[in-house]
């Protein structure tokens, strides 16, 4: 069970950020070759990301490369760079339907084969940025075995919806969040919420984090490292949650040891989902301690 709370965006062309951002210890880092890179820097950013991935700088952090769409002159080259450098996953922007993923999947398989890396090693993430994408979320989420998550991208989506981004508690993303999340859960993959772009508004950010955590998102895309700790803390369990989860795990261990099929705690029956939930709580606690 991989913890994916924070996915930090790093512009592929910015050496200073690429060279240092690992110190903030996000769960995942997303090297951006798309929107954060101007057209004249696409080639340069691609090679920067290729080479940083070949170092050990981000060891222990899941590495994701956001490529340009495959119908641009950059997409395939970006994909080559990501796979050949051994990125853990590729994030496809502007995913509108399952076919986008099928196409990507085929190219990934071809490149993996050509460069002699194990077929299936490269995972996929789909970013959903339109009404069609939201409608097709289920088929997108299940379009490939490589899929590990879907991410909602709010900026283009609200434009497509003829709406606009409000602060963290406004309802403009309500349906999209629910749709994406359901698709992810049904497919057994992770769901990531949108970026919160006002990096100086901690209160608004935390309000939004509270909302998406309650909805059940695994995490959120982030554009500034200072949001990482805020997010991790908000996702950290309370003392009470931790002690309860410990007891659940102990009870499960005891039941297994004794060969008892049914787990009971405080006279209540505990089933498998509760045990996984407890594992997740302890994992988050181990990663970031108790919520402050």
């Amino acid at each position: 069970m991989k913890l994916r709370r924070s996915m930090l965006f790093l512009p592929g062309s910015k050496a200073a950020m690429l060279s240092t951002a690992f110190v903030y210890k996000p769960d995942c880092v997303m090297f951006d070759l798309e929107d954060a890179v101007s057209l004249r820097e696409k080639d340069s950013a691609r090679l920067m990301v290729f080479h940083i991935l070949r170092t050990d700088a981000y060891k222990g952090i899941e590495t994701v490369v956001r490529i340009n769409p495959l119908n641009t002159p950059y997409g395939l080259k970006d994909l080559e760079a990501a796979i050949r450098a051994g990125a853990d996953a590729v994030r496809l922007p502007k995913t509108d339907c399952a076919n986008d993923i099928h196409e990507l999947d085929a190219e990934v398989a071809r490149i993996e084969m050509e460069c002699g890396c194990p077929i299936g090693r490269t995972k996929l993430l789909a970013a959903i940025e339109s009404a069609s994408g939201v409608i097709n979320a289920v088929s997108i989420a299940t379009a490939s075995k490589r899929m590990i998550g879907i991410a909602l991208a709010g900026f283009d989506y609200v434009i497509d919806m003829q709406s606009q981004r409000g602060d963290g508690a406004k309802p403009e993303l309500f349906y999209a969040r629910c749709a994406v999340l359901h698709a992810a859960r049904a497919a057994g993959i992770d769901a990531f919420d949108v970026v919160y772009s006002d990096i100086n508004d901690d209160a608004g950010f935390l309000k939004e984090v509270e909302l998406i955590r309650h909805l059940g998102f695994n995490g959120k895309s982030l554009i500034h490292p200072r949001q990482i700790e805020l997010l991790h803390n908000a996702y950290a369990p309370t003392e009470k949650e931790v002690s309860y989860s410990r007891r659940v795990i102990e009870a499960a261990a005891k039941a297994e040891k004794e060969g008892v099929g049914v787990i009971a705690l405080d006279g209540k029956m505990i089933d498998a989902p509760i045990v996984s939930q407890a594992q997740r709580v302890l994992q988050r606690a181990e990663a970031s301690g108790i919520r402050r």
Partner: peptide, 17 residues
């Protein structure tokens, strides 16, 4: 004060261009 990876990337980019 670039790290080696950046030196490789930028030199390659300039040469290819």
């Amino acid at each position: 004060g670039a790290l080696d990876y950046a030196i490789r990337a930028r030199v390659q980019t300039a040469v290819l261009r």
